[in-house]
Amino acid sequence: MKAIVEYTDYRKFIQDYYDERKRDSALTWREFAQKAGFASAIFLKYVCEGKKNLSISAAGSVADAMGLVGFERTYFVLMVMYAHAKGDEAKMAAFEKCCALARAHKVRVLGSEEFDYYRSWKNPLIRELAPHMPGAMPSEMARACRPKISTAEVAETLDFLEDANLLKKDQEGNYVQTDKSISMGSVEAVPLAARDLQRQMGELAVRAINFPLAERSMSGVVLGLTQESYERVKKELLECRRRIIAIATESNKTQRVYRLNLQLFPLSEDLDVANDALKNKEERNDKKRV
């Protein structure tokens, strides 16, 4: 069975624990439930199947039934709290607690580096900037950033990127990227952090409106689309992004670091639904008049 810090889904952890114990000692769901203090023999089976939820108050009893102690017991309870968290901020806060607990015990949570990477716009900026400023000190990199960030923030970001194996130093002591691109990963909290990064980048775009026209390119159009045409436009944007990345990677030289936002979002509700509601309202009024 995998280490507990390789899980973020408590249901999956319970299921894997049960499957392993069933192979080794013929554990039954009834025995497992009784050991955890549940009257229903199949409650934990339903929990693993997503039919029932394990309450935070009962998480400790289940952890005890699985023989978890110390930080592993606490980590299991935090996984249950993470599952109960409502909204992006609460989810990210619960995941951060899991990561902090793991770091305190010198272990790594699966997806924690990706999660931390997407938490701040400074990480992708420095990851692109540092390899193209050979020999530069953090203070010199800080002065090259726009908007400005402190020397301490650059140094902290560089340390994180090295620890996460997103940057490394070559034989001359210059930074190089370990990979050309970064995968978002499959841990649920990582896309949540990525959405927060998109929000941060959107805020930077608003501030960039004041840049000289020669240094920025901003345009937009309001469109009326069907669902089919929306899917076609979205596909076209993905293809455009792929071509732009190809252009950017043609040369190993970088003169400036840019952020490109591709955004397509609704400014109205579904008009078919709205018109159907309007039509139904008119029909009801006609009946009343009759």
Rank of each mutant, 00 (worst) to 15 (best):
K35A: 10
K91D: 02
A155Q: 09
A130C: 10
A39Q: 14
Y82V: 10
R284V: 05
K91M: 09
L192Y: 14
T151A: 12
R232V: 04
Y17V: 04
A100H: 08
G173W: 05
D196F: 10
T178L: 14
V187G: 00
E250F: 10
M92R: 15
T8S: 14
V80K: 01
M184H: 01
R241K: 15
V206P: 02
V109E: 00
V190F: 01
D272I: 09
A130H: 00
A93R: 07
Y10P: 01
K279Q: 13
A136C: 07
A164C: 11
N252H: 09
C48M: 10
K281V: 04
G202M: 11
M141R: 03
I126Y: 01
G67H: 06
D159Q: 11
N252D: 15
R30E: 07
D163R: 13
D24T: 08
D64F: 01
V47I: 12
R73H: 14
V62F: 02
E6A: 09
A59D: 03
G224K: 08
I126R: 01
L213W: 09
E140I: 04
R103D: 13
I209Y: 11
D64H: 08
I149C: 13
N280C: 05
C98V: 03
H132E: 09
Y46K: 11
S186F: 06
A59S: 10
A100W: 04
F76G: 03
L192N: 00
A36D: 01
K86T: 05
A58N: 15
R73G: 03
S40N: 10
D286S: 08
E228Q: 14
Q15N: 15
M137Y: 12
N174Y: 00
M81Q: 15
G111C: 04
R23V: 06
V80E: 00
L125V: 11
L271D: 01
M66L: 12
L262A: 08
M79R: 03
M201Y: 02
R108D: 12
G111F: 01
S150T: 14
Y175T: 00
L68I: 13
S112Y: 03
L167W: 06
E282K: 10
L27K: 12
A58C: 12
T151Q: 15
C240W: 06
V233W: 02
E89P: 02
T151S: 13
R284P: 00
S57K: 12
A205H: 01
A152K: 07
I182Q: 02
E239R: 15
R284G: 05
D24W: 09
H105L: 08
N252R: 12
L110R: 09
F76R: 00
I42L: 09
R108G: 05
F265Q: 08
N165L: 07
K51R: 15
V77F: 03
S186T: 05
D64A: 14
S186A: 11
N280A: 15
R256H: 06
G202K: 05
K180Q: 12
E6Q: 13
L110C: 05
R119A: 13
G50R: 11
S183L: 06
A41E: 04
P124M: 05
I182G: 08
N174Q: 13
M1H: 09
R30T: 09
W121L: 06
K12Y: 03
E49D: 15
E162Q: 10
A33K: 01
A58D: 14
M92C: 13
V69N: 14
A164T: 07
L110A: 12
D286A: 10
S268H: 07
V221T: 15
A155T: 06
L166Q: 10
A94I: 05
E113V: 03
D170L: 08
R119W: 03
D272C: 11
G135M: 06
